[in-house]
């Protein structure tokens, strides 16, 4: 089998005695979409924040292309072409689209000054692809609609040649049309060979977009499965009860048969 694009092995992190992520291992292959599911507080967002450099894990190892890497800050993650679209979008509301798109990675002139015009030109180019209706290049992001803000956040993740994309509830705040656009984008990026972690509450979304899924409960992995091997009800059982169905590979968080009985 090919080397995974990302492999997180035995990750753990605690906050004030609570094990938010407990011995979690997940992996992701090129051109694959892996859904992360679970209740609120199951540890999904915390897990991906370790990968994106926002949190530092207490223990565990991360491999990119089979090589062990240390991710201590968002900068490290970006260096390994790991890009994240956060649930909160993480946009500076007072700045315009291009400032947000290039935040932390500004284009500069030969004198070292920020090259606003070049950044705006690049922003116009990528927005023309992602959201052709987008026109408000000079307004602060807070003046934009939810969908427009989302497209700025997506543009930021996609622009810098991401290989590993983390999407935390990318469609939660969107209308049906915009949700459709995001779905098409995920298909397209997948076809380009990116690996995508998709966090979602919408089981329907997960089944239509993901190749595999991993379910978490109380900071542990209940099980991982190919979406073709399990049913909606199986997945619900995993999320709510922590019961690992036949088609799935059980994780440390799965109910043992003794518990089940």
């Amino acid at each position: 089998m090919a080397t995974p694009l990302v492999e997180m092995k035995d990750m753990s992190i605690s906050f004030g005695g609570v094990r938010a992520v407990d011995n979690v291992s997940v992996d992701l292959y090129p051109g694959e979409v892996v859904g992360l599911l679970g209740h609120n507080g199951a540890g999904k967002s915390t897990l991906i924040k370790i990968l994106s450099g926002a949190y530092k894990a207490d223990s565990g190892e991360v491999f990119v292309d089979g090589k062990k890497v240390e991710i201590e800050s968002p900068r490290d993650a970006r260096r390994h072409n790991i890009e994240t679209i956060y649930q909160t979008l993480a946009l500076a509301d007072n700045l315009d689209a291009s400032s947000n798109l290039f935040l932390g990675r500004e284009l500069t002139t030969p004198f070292g000054f920020v090259d606003e015009h070049a950044m705006e030109a690049e922003t116009r180019k990528i927005m023309a692809k992602l959201n052709p209706n987008f026109q408000k290049f000079h307004s602060p992001v807070k003046a934009l609609s939810g969908g427009q803000r989302q497209s700025v956040a997506i543009a930021r993740a996609v622009y810098f040649n991401a290989r590993i994309l983390i999407m935390d509830e990318p469609t939660a705040a969107l209308g049906p049309h915009e949700t459709q656009m995001v779905s098409e984008l995920i298909q397209e990026l997948k076809a380009q060979g990116l690996g995508i972690f998709l966090i979602s509450h919408d089981i329907h979304d997960v089944f239509s977009l993901c190749d595999r899924l991993a379910v978490m409960k109380n900071g542990q992995v209940v099980g991982t499965a190919k979406t073709t091997d399990v049913t909606d009800d199986d997945v619900l059982g995993m999320i709510i009860l922590g019961k690992c169905p036949k088609g799935a590979i059980p994780g440390p968080g799965a109910l043992s048969s003794a518990d089940a009985a």
């Binding site: 926002a54 800050s73 500076a92 700045l95 947000n100 935040l103 932390g104 920020v114």
Partner: peptide
């Protein structure tokens, strides 16, 4: 207006979390 420092100052003021997640 024209330096990264200035951008980061305004970005941090607008949304400190976003600034941090952008590697600032």
């Amino acid at each position: 207006q024209r330096t990264r420092l200035g951008r980061y100052i305004f970005a941090t003021g607008g949304n400190p979390d976003a600034a941090e997640l952008s590697g600032i």
